[in-house]
Design a binder for these strands. Sequence first.
DNA 1: GTCTATAGCTAGATAGAC
DNA 2: GTCTATCTAGCTATAGAC
Lengths: 188, 188
Amino acid sequence: MRPQKIDDTALLARLIDVFRSKGYEGSSLNDLAASAGLKKASLYHRFPGGKEEIVTAVLEHTTTWGKTHIEETLADQTVPARQRLEKVIDNIDALYAQGTKTCLFRALSMDTGVPTLDSLIQIDMNNWVQAFKTFAQEIGFTSEVAHQKALQTLINIQGSLIITKGLNDTTIFKNTLHTIKYLYYPTL
Amino acid sequence: MRPQKIDDTALLARLIDVFRSKGYEGSSLNDLAASAGLKKASLYHRFPGGKEEIVTAVLEHTTTWGKTHIEETLADQTVPARQRLEKVIDNIDALYAQGTKTCLFRALSMDTGVPTLDSLIQIDMNNWVQAFKTFAQEIGFTSEVAHQKALQTLINIQGSLIITKGLNDTTIFKNTLHTIKYLYYPTL
DNA sequence: GTCTATAGCTAGATAGAC
DNA sequence: GTCTATCTAGCTATAGAC
């Protein structure tokens, strides 16, 4: 067997970047292949189901990223709570490259004609909310308040990414990320 | 001259709806024409510059919407300040149809290959920020605090729209809109 | 596993009848 | 002003050589 030009995880990373900058319809198979240094036909070898299989794989890869970098990190009882939260914020900062890259969920949550996407995104978002909510409950907030704080966390992240892109000012994302820990530790 | 099947403002309203649900690349001229009850060639008669002229007109229409429903409403000294803010929040609630419709800026701020779009969106967003900032200063906040409140207003709107869509739960948008007035009147 | 070549289709855009 | 018909370019997807 001939060796792969690019391994699966590197390939997925390239594909994610294309989708989140151009969206589903805006990303052609030529775009996707080119960013991976491959030709269209080679992409079909790796993903026989075509564009739909590619975007599904990309979303599933994002799901596992969230499981380790958000959910497990926030729930890791061997680390002090505040330190866990700061680590997660760092992870999110890296995911969005300090606000210079947009969110894959946002890029893929348009009307695409691929009904599966919406439910995959919904599952991921629910997992994120649940992770932050569980964390907030652990440090003493009631279920209801914890839920509101979790939602506000995601709202701040997504909203600041949009405004950062629109105004072309990454300090907005940076400042918003910085305020998130005060949602959970108001007395700091 | 033959009568128009649909007048300019109604036409623009239909076109906006297509763009904000499907994005720029996802909206084909057939989609756009069909939603207006016209054929492609008729759209070219109204917008000789094609898709780029259509999307530009759509964004300019949104700019004038913002001028009247946000900027002028917030600055209207003949109305009590709190009442102006509540009116603007109502206008925003209507614009996004209680959270069921996504934001045009968000839909069009992907990598489209149409460089004009980014700067049009940036101008609109800046106008919105400036309008809320001026309002916040008028009711007593310092320039720096007023700026932060204006940014947080837009972040909450955009973020809650994304999360509302992702989780398929319009109560999130409703609740977030409801909290915006407490940004400006914390003692309420 | 990757590639070239190509099928079949739909996109954006035009020409010209009414 | 709207339409049908059509052009070209790009799209997704496949076949088959290496």
